[in-house]
Design a protein around this nucleic acid. Structure first.
Lengths: 114, 114
DNA sequence: AGGGTGGGTTTCCTTCAAGTAACCACGGGG
DNA sequence: CCCCGTGGTTACTTGAAGGAAACCCACCCT
């Protein structure tokens, strides 16, 4: 792995670009939910705990702009909207897996040490 | 990978705990610098681009609290302080590598599509 | 006397993500 | 008639992160 490149200094290194998407308070957890398969707005809210509708809408729109999630609106009453990962979103699976694994292993060894 | 666990809803799922450390504007890039080997304060500043002394100090102290970096102060005039990764910090290497790889591959395919 | 050095601290200010609360359209059910 | 559920929107407020600029020690060199 070559951690060096000219533009890394300018602040748009690959790390930062990935973290623009996967960082932040909710994005990773939303993607995690959708790695299970498509879900509707209310299901996402339920799976994410204390996220407000405003923030969830915001984050989903942002992730849609980034072509990470796709929004499938089924008209009718009441309206139902399903969210699913795009291929680009799916491609984040190994990244999320790495983050998840570190969190799990670390929790264990951190507790063991103290 | 089992993306489910009871406490995931409470917001302290393994993903979030890893991102507490690796997320944020500078943390990942600081760790990236130190994966090259120990560096001194000024070297870090140089490698990171436009980070102010205040913020860098802040981030380094935080990472030290998390036992990700170790601070080696060599007294004298002028004072010299070296920062190095702890084993816990080193263990983040695969995580950073995954983030980095996604950023690189994505940059390519994103540009190709556009 | 004045400047450079390394590794900061302090104060102030701006920005932005997130939270709170209220509201919307529909139609169905009681 | 009024509320419920779905998937939001809008306006307002808050808190924390981050940046800018100035300053600090203690010593060396000129």
């Amino acid at each position: 792995m070559d951690w060096r490149s000219p533009e890394l200094v300018a602040g748009d290194c690959p790390l930062s670009r990935t973290l623009d998407i996967v960082g932040g308070r909710w994005n990773a957890m939303i993607i995690r939910e959708l790695l299970d398969g498509p879900k509707r707005f209310t299901q996402l809210r339920a799976g994410l705990g204390p996220v407000t509708a405003k923030v969830l809408t915001e984050r989903l729109r942002l992730l849609a702009d980034y072509d990470i999630v796709r929004r499938d609106e089924q008209r009718g009453v009441p309206p139902r909207v399903a969210y699913a990962l795009t291929p680009r979103g799916e491609s984040l699976r190994p990244v999320l897996a790495a983050l998840w694994r570190w969190g799990v292993r670390d929790e264990a060894s951190w507790a063991a040490a103290g």
